[in-house]
């Protein structure tokens, strides 16, 4: 998984994205704008983090952080 390293810590990209979705549901386009990350990277990382239960996806395809990831984020 590209969102956590071999020690189980969040990667820099993952932290940026999780911070961007820590308050409200955001679209990949908004996240890319906020973080300065390329849109393709935001989309692939969100897919990765969704499969790990780090983010939840709305019907409108916007994303918000899950508690599990919030805990990891607070530790990093």
């Amino acid at each position: 998984m590209a969102c956590i390293d071999d020690k189980g810590n969040l990667t820099t990209t993952a932290k940026k994205i999780l911070n961007a979705v820590s308050e409200d549901f955001r679209s990949p386009e908004e996240i890319a704008k906020d973080t300065g990350l390329p849109l393709f990277k935001v989309r692939s990382s969100l897919r990765d983090m969704k499969s790990m239960g780090f983010v939840t996806e709305s019907e409108e395809q916007t994303y918000k952080i899950e508690e599990r990831a919030r805990t990891l984020l607070s530790k990093s």
Binding site: A2, E29, L39, F40, K41, R43, S44, R47
Partner: peptide, 13 residues
């Protein structure tokens, strides 16, 4: 080298 990528990730670019 940047993880798993789909072509559809590039939509809009």
């Amino acid at each position: 080298t940047h993880g798993t990528i789909r072509l559809e990730d590039y939509k809009g670019s």
